[in-house]
Design a protein around this nucleic acid. Sequence first.
DNA 1: CTGAAAGCGCTTACAG
DNA 2: CTGAAAGCGCTTACAG
Lengths: 334, 334
Amino acid sequence: MRVTIAEVARRARVSKTTVSRVLNNKSDVDAATAIRVREVIAATGYIPSAGAVGLARGVTRTVGMLVPGLTWPWMGEVLQGVADVVESKGYGLLLSTANRGADSLDEFARQVSAKAFDGLLLVEPPDAVRHLRVLHDSGLPVVVIDDRGRRPAFPWVGTDNRQGGAAAARHLLRTGRRNLATVTGPRDFGCTSDRLNGFHAAVLEAGLDLDPRLIIEGDFTSESGEAAILQLLATGPEFDAVFAHNDLTAAGVLAGLRKAGRTVPDDVAVVGFDDIPLAAHTQPPLTTIRQPSREMGEAAARQLLARLAGSPPPDDPVIVPTSLVVRESSSAHW
Amino acid sequence: MRVTIAEVARRARVSKTTVSRVLNNKSDVDAATAIRVREVIAATGYIPSAGAVGLARGVTRTVGMLVPGLTWPWMGEVLQGVADVVESKGYGLLLSTANRGADSLDEFARQVSAKAFDGLLLVEPPDAVRHLRVLHDSGLPVVVIDDRGRRPAFPWVGTDNRQGGAAAARHLLRTGRRNLATVTGPRDFGCTSDRLNGFHAAVLEAGLDLDPRLIIEGDFTSESGEAAILQLLATGPEFDAVFAHNDLTAAGVLAGLRKAGRTVPDDVAVVGFDDIPLAAHTQPPLTTIRQPSREMGEAAARQLLARLAGSPPPDDPVIVPTSLVVRESSSAHW
DNA sequence: CTGAAAGCGCTTACAG
DNA sequence: CTGAAAGCGCTTACAG
């Protein structure tokens, strides 16, 4: 039989009110009484029922997290960042997936309405916009973790895609490359245009320009990277470097170059984006722009918990900077 | 203001009892009354509070999941498998991490005691044994997802490591390899001995044997794979194939062979274990024994939900079979 | 077929 | 410093 507050009260010969007071460290309890109650608590191993506390207080000490899918390469890092701060504050983490489309979103909307959590972390899903109305209406605190570079109506944390694109260009130029090709992400993603704009701006800054024929749209898969390279080699002008908008695409670029007999980095340098685990194990290992997934998770969780603790929503998004990770796919051999 | 059952009852001019009945599809409600109540529910968007229902029913419709860490390469697949079945049954998933050591386990034990969930999925953590006592005592239904090949005291789902090891050996022998080296996982992991035993048995079956000098203990990191190869090349007998006990180690093996100037697969064939995303992108792409992580997650979740629905605990563990994935690191060029 | 009442396990004014 | 009582939002005998 589970021990309840009533049982503890009985054994300590006090009221439930008093037990509740020592449980919550209210100051006005006689020292001796408090000690007696604490002894009973320790002896019985009593832990208040989360559900009952939640109902009485109107708060669950749980945060929800909705992710588009769990198998994306950087999701583990994001989750770990979130879990670390959420757990260290004694909150629970209720995880939901938008993996099964409308069904999952409906199920999720139920959880929101059922007040199953106090706040929500949202890793921006493809098309949840319609469903997000529920969130607004419910007045639930939300922080979005944005991997797409859209500008949501909620507080959000993102990374500096523009800056990352610029860093890629500068690195390539610094190591002597002049004819830069790009395999982008899907055109309608905000991060794609940010990465491309930053890349372009840095090239202009150096007094050079990008050849539009060397910009190919990909879709973030390695297949699209390989296809882009084969197309460039067949029909495009010469190039001595490729900036791929993510590492998977870059891996495809590497494969395409290998098939075509081009050497990396001697003939062509390759730079990716993300720094997923894969990047260190391609051949050659991939130079890339590290996306700080874990830090983004941590920052988002911290921001949400701050709101739950009463802070007002921040005016500005949190932007965690990218960083350049140099590996062999771009090292200058000259 | 949140709408409650009382509000619905008032608007529908019935008692809360009746509303509760139609909510839970009890049969004995007048058809017309039921319709009226449903209309009010639809009009107000009423969803019962999860916390209140849980308190009244003594059940949370949430399952807990404790994982050693979120950044392991195959964890995403396991999580997705679990999430898919848990969500499809309308359960919530409360995720906890043992990442911060004793602290996290304590925090987790509190959640268990606080009855925050109805059942638990446990991805076997390094040393949670001591803490697991809480679980037993609490009478909480538990299913463990076992990546270590230990034999826990709970119902569990695992994969057939022995069979996987055997498949690796048979594949290598079938493609003409005769001098088989192995880089194992840590010696005290059950999966290490299972994989090694299966491998060895298949070799014996073919009328051959393993040279003990060609068996090196690794620790599941790519560094250990690379180190093992360099050591073998320096001091060991010749070999024409390597079976690494996971893909990360295999990636290190590939790197070591490359540095030593050995060609894969011509000089040496390499087979890994797991089939993490990396495996398709090494150079050459890695032949490996696929560990069915997602299926394991699904199976475990299904089993747990069955128990929550009243099924007795199964006598036997669920063993999801491995499968051989042939890529270029082992294709016979002869 | 329907409702009043008790109960789930807590917290929180309120009164003393 | 302490306790009786009401309340959080549901469900479930019980009675009719």
